[in-house]
């Protein structure tokens, strides 16, 4: 029986051959591309400079693949940051031909378009750590400042939980998209306000503040107000929406910030974002048992 089931999942030879062929096609070198790479070590170099490398690239090769080849074969000192290689960790965001993108999610040929040069530099609006790696210290400080966690006042329930907190699908949908943020920094890098106002909290932190404030399990609006409702908080956003334009996860931080502004104004007239969610009472469990 088990072997019969297993047989069902074996690919027919012609499909297997086709797949192998497609895969070979994907990795066959098709074009020579010149990589223009920003080099700068603030601890050592007087000024930034550019380095050029030429590489035969295939259709499937991502910018990160190319960078790792260059690092392995031509320039071992090349500084870059990456981890998951599948668009999940947010480490590899950089300026690829002038636009904020994830190196592991961008194919070289897609970035090059009809040209034959791919220019790579660290994210704008960030200090340089080394070469293509930006310094995220202030970015994460801003993220931490908005207290990106659930804040509750019911200590008794927190210490002795009686059940999960109640939340409807509609309530979940209000903040769902913002949970997709991978903290890659692309949005802050594209933000024109952040370009001049380095104290500005930025799209990522503000969208996360909104995400937690509208979460019905959260009760931290008043705590976060002292951070977001300031001279360098959400009111400095001019709704250019460049942040949403570059987000690799399809999050819309610009929308989050406008909703946050609306929420702050409504609060002036006594509106609260939501009633704090109650824990699904123990009686539910008791009823089930009964």
């Amino acid at each position: 029986m088990a072997s019969e089931e297993a047989k069902e999942y074996v690919l027919p030879p012609e499909v297997l051959e086709e797949t192998m062929k497609a895969s070979e096609e994907l990795w066959k070198p098709v074009r020579k591309i010149k990589f223009r790479i920003y080099k700068y070590n603030p601890r050592k170099d007087y000024a930034p400079y550019w380095e050029e490398h030429e590489l035969e690239v295939s259709r499937g090769m991502t910018v990160l693949d190319a960078l790792l080849i260059i690092k392995g074969e031509a320039d071992h000192s090349l500084g870059l940051r990456y981890s998951c290689r599948m668009g999940l960790c947010g480490s590899c965001a950089m300026m690829i031909n002038g636009k904020q993108m994830l190196a592991c999610q961008t194919r070289v040929l897609e970035a090059a378009g009809s040209g034959d040069v791919v220019e790579l530099r660290p994210l704008d609006n960030f200090p340089v750590e080394r070469d293509l790696a930006a310094d995220f210290t202030s970015f994460f400080e801003k993220h931490r400042a908005v207290k990106p966690w659930i804040i509750r006042n019911d200590d008794v329930e927190l210490n002795n939980p009686t059940g999960p907190y109640k939340q409807t699908v509609d309530e979940y949908a209000r903040y769902y998209q913002f949970t997709d943020c991978i903290k890659c920094g692309a949005c802050l890098s594209a933000c024109p306000t952040a370009a001049t106002d380095y104290e500005y909290l930025g799209p990522q932190a503000l969208a996360q503040a909104y995400r937690y404030i509208v979460d019905t399990r959260d009760n931290g609006l008043d705590v976060r107000i002292s951070v977001v409702d300031t001279e360098h908080g959400c009111w400095r956003c001019h709704f250019a929406a460049s942040c949403s334009d570059v987000c690799p996860r399809g999050v819309d931080p610009a929308q989050g910030i406008q909703l946050l502004k609306k929420l702050l104004i409504k609060r002036k007239f006594g509106f609260k974002p939501h009633k704090p969610a109650e824990a699904l009472p123990a009686k539910v469990k008791a009823e089930k048992k009964g």
């Binding site: 104290e199 500005y200 001279e231």
Partner: peptide
């Protein structure tokens, strides 16, 4: 005021500007 705050983001200047 908003333009100046963005151009001179230093927190101690923010209050003076206002």
């Amino acid at each position: 005021r908003v333009i100046l705050i963005e151009m001179v983001p230093d927190r101690c200047w923010t209050k003076w500007i206002s």
